[in-house]
Amino acid sequence: MTDKRKAEEGGLAPWFEAGRAEVPAPSGDWLARMEAMALAEQPAPRPQQAPDAGAAPRGGWLREMLGVLGGWPAMAGLVAACATGIWFGAAAPSGVSDWLSASAGDGISALEPASGFDYAMLGL
């Protein structure tokens, strides 16, 4: 009890002390009912998130490979080069063939050990 309160009580202090000593206590039965009510009124527990749930697919082998190659921009370049190589290998435009013939002559075929398809697969 604070000194201020004690000073306020003055001559009534013994009466208040007796009053404070008599704490009205609820019955055990009532407390049990209150506990049951508290549990009945309680909101459902919040669903717990599984640790790293949903992160596993994003961190798989594809993401690792992409990281090694330089990400999606590098992959796009690789795919474009691959497609161009296949196209050249399957049906090279005559203009390109002429240009190659004019600039390098027939020797080009002798100097080219790999085909356009091979270059495409190498991503060059």
Binding site: P26, L31, M34, E35, A38, L39, Q42, P43, P45, R46
Partner: peptide, 23 residues
């Protein structure tokens, strides 16, 4: 903790506040 659904908090609060409210 009670609002988060912890039953132990419901029991502890009842035991702590119930007698005071009743008193």
């Amino acid at each position: 903790a009670y609002a988060a659904g912890e039953p132990a908090a419901a029991r502890a609060l009842t035991l702590r506040l119930g007698p005071r409210a009743f008193g």
